[in-house]
Amino acid sequence: MDSIQVGDFKFRLDLSKPLYEQVLQHIRQTIARGDVLLGTKLPSVRDLAHQLKLNPNTVMRAYQELDRYHLTETRRGQGTFITSDSETVELVKKALAREAVIAFVSSMKNLGIDRSTTESLLKEVAWHE
């Protein structure tokens, strides 16, 4: 699927993976990267379901999950807003970074590369392109 811009958020959905997790992950990453301002309103469930051709239940489930992590706040009759609390965003950013490191470590292990070699490879790698 091509990437689709809905409000401040960009989505690229892969039908071979759970859709709800992808919606959740896209929004979490956008917030963690700081690509949207704190306190911004998320697209309505209706808009997102229509634009992404998703079952509204799938979108609602992702939004409930964001609420559960206090990353968003749903105000009755007004919609869902990104938290204004920068500490919560920092925590989520760290959690996402940790997930990325765990994935990286497991792919190094799959290649049979040990910790010290991995660490020296990391030091050699150029951070700026």
Partner: peptide, 29 residues
């Protein structure tokens, strides 16, 4: 689009039979 609206408007059980998957795949739960 209409199916999405319908799901938003009222809780319903919807069965869709198909011999092709088409664009409906992302609606199936």
């Amino acid at each position: 689009q209409l199916l999405i609206n319908s799901m938003l408007d009222q809780p319903q059980t919807i069965l869709i039979s198909s011999h092709e998957i088409h664009e409906a795949e992302s609606l199936f739960e």
